[in-house]
Design a protein around this nucleic acid. Structure first.
Lengths: 138, 138
DNA sequence: ATCCATGCAAACGGTTTGCAATATA
DNA sequence: TATATTGCAAACCGTTTGCATGGAT
């Protein structure tokens, strides 16, 4: 998804296109890994010092409700992280917090779906994170 | 792991055996799913009204450092959850928060280990959670 | 002109910490 | 007795909210 698609999606849903929202979307597009709201704020301040942290939270939650952004909680970090929605999983360094994304998906090969059927549970999404030490920290 | 094993492990590591710690371990043994510190506190108050929430946090972190307790963060819940350590994964209901544990493990069948080797990443642990709606909520 | 979105500042809630009192070994 | 542990209360920090101002449609 690019900037045009995302702004169109906002308009289609009846939300206004403000400079702050555009700036936030651009910043999210510039990251290739999950980031905290305050990390996004930091990056944003370089060129848009006038966007408040509250607005970042509100915009990310809005984008999240439209399925444009995904929200995750990694086991060893206290803060919520956000990233543009696309299906993948993460290697997470327990020391430095570095996140490496990868595409392999466990759903294709576990008996998870079978288990869900037995429990009469309907699957919506899933999370798979692998923790350890990156090349610098091990 | 039972009460004896756990208290022994505490003693072996030079920690003192207090009534509070024993009560906390017993409560954790009584749960078969991850619980928040305050949920444990609630249950504890039934028979041990004199254990403070701070002590629960401190004890759970201590047990966590000994590998007796595991700490997880589910995507849709804000609070940290704790459970006695044993390897498994979770189905999590997005509506009522119900957690169903299951044993199937995705590590055995994804190419994750291969990816880790390519990234020079050493794996310590992993998390796999499946979100959706339970039989009551769907 | 209307009403949504923003910024500010304060509230919130779960978690952590300093310190003095207490209990374990 | 010495030292780790506890309880209390306050601090902490990321996140959320109320409200008045300002901006997009």
């Amino acid at each position: 998804m690019n900037l045009k698609d995302i702004t169109q999606s906002l308009k289609d849903s009846g939300y206004k296109l403000t400079p702050q929202r555009i700036a936030i979307i651009k910043v999210m597009l510039s990251f290739d890994k999950p980031v905290s709201a305050s990390k996004a704020h930091q990056k944003l301040k370089e060129h848009h010092p006038n966007v408040s942290l509250d607005t970042i939270y509100r915009s990310l939650h809005l984008l999240s409700s439209l399925g444009i952004v995904t929200q995750i909680n990694l086991a060893n970090r206290e803060r919520e992280l956000f990233e543009l929605a696309h299906h993948h999983h993460h290697l997470v360094c327990l020391k430095c917090g570095k996140v490496i994304c990868f595409d392999a998906c466990p759903m294709s090969c576990t008996e998870t779906e079978e288990i869900a059927v037995n429990q009469n549970f309907s699957i919506v999404s899933h999370a798979f994170e692998v923790y350890g030490y990156c090349s610098n920290c091990k």
